[in-house]
Design a protein around this nucleic acid. Structure first.
Length: 318
DNA sequence: GCGTCCAGGTCTACC
DNA sequence: GGTAGACCTGGACGC
């Protein structure tokens, strides 16, 4: 889809804000799309903002302590003034520009594990999608598969069912929207992208969102953390782990891989059976970090190489 | 070359 | 309410 209408504005994030660490994360997590492009302080990506497909170009103009970002949104049609305002507000929130890291850093400086990440990741903010479906679908594609295969499933799913945003000389595929996936045939999806049993779950999830409606991330944020999680658990294919990935309040999403990482950090050794150890390790993370559990998880998994060196241990990389 | 196991979970039938 | 077993697929491993 060609996106020719352009809305430009400047964002002044809450410092410290490291553009590169936040927008192009060390562990390789995408900001909005697996197909986004990052080159020397500029990100081209695509996403659904306020139910509108948007090509997004972000250019860093400042420093960590005095951050400035020039943002351009590429849309199909000219937005109304109110819509443009809403798009801007949503993007600012989604790239973590309105997030204040000071309270988290005050806690992290006193923590034996987190304080080791602060030099490496100083100014890295949390980011999120504005709608639930991308992260929810992603979490289903992470289930019961090695990362390489999950990546292949995601790439195929996005290209086959997502929209291509054509803007600024780029063509970037955005995560599929639920209304389109809800109309897909699970058998066809399973065969085309080798999703196996996950295809049925993703289509059921898309139908649940499209046909019955579902809160946006902003709406989930207005609920309590437990209420938001309970709402997420209503979606087909979303269990405890996936809900903790999607929940905008954050959680402590321990799976077989992260059980090895946090088992080693908390108890000095990887568990013999990761699946059986998940509950114990999750409980320890929540006990230790409480409301900061998600930020702690985020900072640790983005810094595994450095942590391995500093602690002289072999943390499993993602 | 072939069989088995298992990977960044969730759901369901059964007790 | 608690839990064993099933679920797609493909790479790793042992033989």
């Amino acid at each position: 889809m060609k996106l020719a209408s352009v809305v430009s504005f400047e964002i002044v994030p809450t410092p410290p804000y490291d553009f590169e660490l936040t927008i192009h994360k060390p562990a390789g997590w995408s900001l909005f799309s697996n197909y986004e492009v990052y080159q020397r302080g500029t990100m081209w990506t695509a996403t659904s903002l306020v139910d509108t497909l948007a090509g997004v170009k972000l250019v860093s103009r400042g420093t960590v302590e005095r951050p400035r970002i020039t943002a351009k949104l590429f849309l199909k049609e000219n937005p109304t003034r109110d819509k443009a305002k809403e798009l801007r507000k949503t993007l600012v929130h989604d790239i973590g520009a309105d997030e204040d890291l000071n309270d988290f850093y005050a806690m992290a400086k006193e923590d034996d594990i987190l304080r080791l990440t602060l030099d490496d990741l100083y100014g890295m903010h949390n980011t999120m999608q504005s709608t639930v479906f991308p992260d929810a679908a992603l979490s289903v594609l992470l289930q019961m598969a090695p990362m390489k295969r999950s990546g292949e499933m995601m790439d195929c799913f996005i290209k086959r069912y997502g929209d291509a945003a054509e803007f600024d000389g780029r063509k970037i595929w955005a995560w599929p929207r639920p209304e389109r996936v809800a109309r897909a045939r699970p058998e066809e999806m399973a065969k085309a992208c080798k999703l196996g049993y996950r295809a049925k779950r993703i289509v059921q999830m898309a139908k649940a969102i499209d046909e019955h409606g579902f809160p946006t991330m902003r709406e989930l944020e207005t609920m309590s953390a437990d209420e938001a999680k309970a709402k997420l658990l209503e979606l087909p294919g979303i269990g405890d782990y996936s809900a903790d990935i999607v929940n905008p309040h954050g959680g402590f999403p321990i799976d077989v891989w992260s059980a090895d990482v946090f088992g080693l950090l908390f108890f000095g050794r990887e568990p013999e059976n990761g699946r059986e150890a998940v509950e114990k390790i999750k409980a320890e993370g929540l006990r230790r970090w409480g409301k900061w559990s998600w930020m702690a998880f985020y900072y640790v998994v983005q810094d595994l190489k450095n942590l391995s060196r500093k602690l002289n241990v072999k943390l499993r990389l993602s």
